[in-house]
Design a protein around this nucleic acid. Structure first.
Lengths: 343, 343
DNA sequence: TTGTATGCGTTATCAA
DNA sequence: TTGATAACGCATACAA
């Protein structure tokens, strides 16, 4: 009973019918005798027929497959996005490839070629952004795609779904400033990433509103994948850098910063106020209450899938999509002013 | 320049050669004039040819694709596994489908059918284990697969890679018992899951060794995906259940338990000692030091991929694989005896 | 109601 | 060294 994949041909041979008849019976076409149809269906079940979507795809040109290209699924932010994307895609009978780029330009390019080679119907990509050339390959090959989480300001033809990074940066900085933290360390992502630039813009806007001087030396770029947050925060502490608040590009960096501060015996809140970005703790109930900026990953993911499917199903259409999902301030203990008391 | 996908036929037409020649040139076959080969390669690059792996797959029967079926990529444990699997697979020029089952039997079955339908060369699956029937479909269709993280004791034909769950349970319980926690709450996973049963066996072995009585009422099953850990721990606290140590089936459950304890004003360590499983914090530097059992997710993932690829490349072979990766106790603050002092 | 022929893009085989 | 042809498994159009 075990063995090779069962094909339509196997069923046809067994049933003494033509491949075509079997195919139509399984597809519930009208022009098949009810008895024949039932017989074939029973046989298919009995023989464990599953069907070869590939062969059909070759004809139709559609694979019901999309590729999701991100830096790292192990990062909870992307893990959550991928989960939501998969769920939304599955609802529409799509299956997803997941390819990690580790934010590496070459891996990203390879990922894109792989996706095209596998004939995906579309691609959702969070680009590493070392250059837009890679993405242009997609346009050249006529593969529908939507950027997610990051955008290219100077490429009006690239559709995207992002969150309101500028507002998020603004809200975070404003909150720290209003809580009395005038010297804020901003552990930002690399400036090649659009969201890092935009969050910084919001951060600076908040500073401008207060009239306080911006401390350029406290705006530091961190590689999110490399995990050098620890090294940098250690250095800053050793150097006795002068800050009382930290705004981190994402929650992972924020956690790591607090991790180091705690190792040095500092307390958060209390000695330092820390706020992250992504609000991962709305889904993971960690025993540390980190304030954060929520960016509705569920909504972003679903929206990106919707747009992508629309583009897939309306190849001619010339609309463009620039969706910016709202961000909001989520307060938890890590920025509580009363932190010093702790009790 | 934008537009449809470039095919071999397009290249052939442009070059004034046959499709076949173009194909062989691009594949670096020997029997092609060097000049012709170069010309075709240049042309391919110029026209942005990417190739249609699908069509090739139809012929060869191989798709260079594997499916990874897990309960939930957003769970860091699976996120890390998927990342490692993808990396290992990519090294061998394989691409992965990721499908979440939410530990649901029907979704799992659909996932398997989807994978077979897409003609994956093999499947890595962490089965929901409501029944092995679903998995048998794979055998029936001759699709190579390897179970990962869970096994079916009564199905000797199913290959697996798991970690030493029994030992892990034993180490965790022993550590708590030796630290003076005689009443340990075990927030276990559902008993349908093999790893939950095996961790419990280890847990009980540690108890037996001490001669202490096992408190059956403190062994409680929690649904990992549903997030009902909070509800259950709340209830236990309200009921003033009698325990001082907690062993959790995984780190996510452990975090959540501590989260609730902290909400009630309890301290970990100090009032309670807590240990998890999976040692996720070897990769995520959280500001809470959770002791845990490490299970070498990287090693497990790589091993599973290796076995799967071996099975794919040696369809006849009748070896079986039952790999059990070692587990180890990783101590952090959450089980520190000096916790009460807190420095 | 069922069967035959054709094509999807690629590769393998064999002939030229 | 190159080209023609068949085949992979399925779906469509059309013929029977």
């Amino acid at each position: 009973m075990d063995g090779k994949k069962v094909t339509l041909r196997d069923l046809a041979l067994q049933a003494g019918l033509s491949v075509n008849t079997v195919s139509r019976a399984l597809k519930d076409k009208e022009d098949i005798a009810a008895a024949t149809r039932q017989m074939i269906k029973d046989l298919a079940k009995e023989m464990g027929y599953v069907g070869n979507a590939l062969a059909g795809s070759l004809r139709s040109g559609l694979t019901k497959t999309i590729a999701v290209i991100v830096s790292d699924v192990a990062n909870p932010h992307f893990g959550i996005m991928v989960k939501e994307i998969e769920k939304a895609a599955r609802k529409h009978h799509y299956t997803i490839f997941v390819i990690n780029t580790e934010d590496d330009h070459e891996l990203e390019e390879r990922a894109i070629y792989t996706a095209i080679g596998k004939n995906v119907d579309g691609i959702l990509i969070c680009p590493s952004q070392r250059s837009a050339d890679t993405i242009r390959i997609l346009k050249k090959n006529g593969v529908p795609f939507v950027l997610i989480g990051r955008r290219f300001e100077d490429e009006p033809e690239f559709d995207y779904v992002i969150c309101d990074d500028e507002k998020g940066g603004y809200l975070a900085a404003k909150h720290l400033l209003e809580s009395g933290h005038e010297r804020v360390l901003y552990l930002n992502g690399p400036s090649r990433i659009s969201s890092a630039r935009e969050r910084l813009a919001g951060f600076l806007r908040a500073y401008r509103e207060t009239g306080l001087p911006v401390r350029e030396d406290l705006i530091i770029e961190v590689e999110p994948t490399a995990g050098d947050t620890r090294k940098i925060v250690k250095q800053l502490i050793e150097q006795k850098a002068d800050f009382t608040g930290i705004f981190a590009f994402n929650d992972v960096i924020a956690w790591e910063a607090v991790y180091v501060l705690q190792k040095y015996g500092y307390r958060v809140p209390g000695d330092y106020a820390v706020i992250g970005f992504d609000n991962i703790q709305s889904r993971m109930f960690l025993p540390f209450q980190l304030s954060s900026i929520s960016n509705s990953k569920g909504k972003m993911s679903k929206r990106a899938v919707d747009i992508l499917l629309h583009k897939i199903n309306h190849p001619g259409a010339k609309e463009s999509y620039r969706d910016v999902i709202d961000t909001a301030l989520i307060l938890r203990d890590s920025t509580k002013p009363s932190g010093r008391g702790d009790g």
